[in-house]
Design a protein around this nucleic acid. Structure first.
Lengths: 157, 157
DNA sequence: GTTGCTGCAAACCCTTTGCATAGGA
DNA sequence: TCCTATGCAAAGGGTTTGCAGCAAC
C-alpha cells in the first residue's frame, strides 16, 4: 500500500531545531569518540529538513538532489547513531518498509493509519500517555519511548 | 538484542481455539476462492500450536520438526492470508526482525520491552484501549487493531 | 479435467562488510 | 601524523518469482 503524507496535529518545527540537533549530535559524537565528519553533518541536515516519513533510499535521493554526495553505505552506517542520539526514530506504518522520521522538535505522537486509503494521521494524547505510564509502572518499568499504531478505517459521513 | 520469552498476563489458549481458527480460515479461503490445501492446514496448525513470538524461519523449522514438509516459498505465500483472516499478526519487538504471533484465542495485548535485557512483557489495559478509542474517534476512525510497544527499563529494587 | 498451488532454484532487494583511500583531530 | 570514516563493490540474508509438475475440486 502506498504512503500518503501524514496530517493531523504535528507539532511545528522551529528554525532553532536544527541547531539543537546539531549541538546534540556533536555532543553525542564527542561522548562516543566518533569524528565530526562532513558526511555526518550532511545526513543530519537532510534528516532535519524532511518533515515526512522517509525510507533510507528516499533519504539517499534527497541528499543527492541537494548536491550532498553520501554513499548508501555511509548512510546506513550512521543512521543508528542518529537514533541513539535521540534525533531520529523508526516508524512502523504497517507497510513492511523501514521508515524514519526525525523526532527532535516534534512532540511525541502516535500514528493512526487507514487500512483502506493508507492515509496517515499523527496526533498525541495525554490520556494515552498516562494510561501507558500506569500500565508500565504496574510491571516496574520506566518508560523511555512509546510506539503506537492505530489501524482502522475512516468513517465517511 | 536477543529475545526472551514473553511473560505477564497472556490470556490462555483454549483447546477449542484451533477448531475456531480452522473454521475461520476455511471460511476465509472459500470467500476468497482459494483452495483448502494440506500445506495451508499444516501452517495453520503450527501457527496455532506456538504460543510465543516466532520468525518465518522458526516457523519453517518447527514445521519440519513436526514432519510437515512445507517449502519456505509456500510459507511466505500464505502468511498474508493468515493475517488477513485475523489469525496471525506481526509484532514489532524493536529488533528489526519481522516476528509473528497468533492472535486468535488471545486477548488484545501490548508489548512492554526492556531496552537493557530485551525482556518482553505482555499485558493489556482497558484504560489504554479506551484512550486510544477516543483518540481515533476524534479523527473519525473506527479502530480495527492497536499495535503498542512500550520501550523502557525495568526498575530494580 | 481444469485450475490453482507447491517446490525448486534463481532472482531480487535491502543492508552489511572488506579493503584501499581520504580526511578529521 | 595517526586513526577513524568513507566509497566502492562484493557478499549476505531474507523474501519473492518463474516455471514445471502436482493436487484440490
Amino acid at each position: 500500500m502506498p504512503n500518503k503524507k501524514p496530517s493531523g496535529n504535528p507539532a511545528p518545527l522551529k528554525p532553532a531545531d536544527f541547531d539543537e540537533a546539531l549541538e546534540r549530535y556533536r555532543e553525542y559524537l564527542k561522548r562516543k569518540k566518533l569524528l565530526f565528519t562532513r558526511e555526518r553533518i550532511a545526513i543530519l541536515e537532510e534528516v532535519m529538513a524532511r518533515h515526512d516519513h522517509f525510507s533510507v533510499e528516499e533519504l539517499h535521493d534527497s541528499l543527492k538532489a541537494n548536491g550532498k554526495k553520501v554513499s548508501r553505505a555511509t548512510l546506513y552506517r550512521n543512521l543508528d547513531s542518529l537514533k541513539e542520539a535521540g534525533i531520529l526514530a523508526e516508524v512502523d506504518l504497517g507497510n513492511r518498509h523501514v521508515q524514519y522520521e526525525h523526532v527532535l522538535g516534534h512532540r511525541q505522537h502516535f500514528h493512526i493509519i487507514c487500512e483502506e486509503t493508507s492515509e496517515i494521521i499523527e496526533d498525541d494524547s495525554v490520556e494515552v500517555e498516562k494510561a501507558v505510564e500506569i500500565l508500565a509502572r504496574k510491571h516496574g518499568f520506566d518508560v523511555s519511548r512509546i510506539k503506537l499504531q492505530i489501524f482502522g478505517t475512516k468513517r465517511r459521513k
